[in-house]
């Protein structure tokens, strides 16, 4: 779980990444709004990592019923978000490609 000595470091990462995220997106043509939203949404499925470690904590604690159910459900939903998100973005972008 949380490590007090790492907290400040984590906070630094958090704040710097927010600045980076703001700089990353400035001018986006309207046609790309939806694919970009969808792609970013797939990246936010990174909580799949959190869900993975969640299952491990549950395993080490001896597989408590409710907590392991929650972790398993989290893993499934996060994975659906990741795979579905990237797939649907890919489909959207493919429709643009035919133009050339």
């Amino acid at each position: 779980m949380i490590d007090p000595s790492l907290f400040l470091l984590n906070l630094t990462l958090f704040v710097l990444a927010i600045f980076l995220g703001v700089e990353l997106i400035n001018k986006v043509p309207a046609t790309l709004h939806t694919p970009l939203m969808s792609g970013a949404n797939a990246v936010s499925g990174i909580s799949v990592i959190g869900a993975l470690f969640g299952t491990q904590i549950v395993m080490q604690d001896g597989g408590r019923s409710v907590a392991s159910l929650l972790a398993g459900l989290a893993l499934m939903l996060a994975m659906a978000n990741v795979v579905g998100g990237f797939a649907v973005t890919h489909r959207m972008l493919n429709m643009f490609k035919k133009k050339s």
Partner: peptide, 19 residues
């Protein structure tokens, strides 16, 4: 305590907000 969750999460949070 996972750096990637922190970075990717806040990245999407910020860029999503700008979008």
């Amino acid at each position: 305590n996972n750096p990637l969750l922190l970075v990717a999460g806040s990245l999407v949070g910020a860029s999503g907000f700008i979008l």
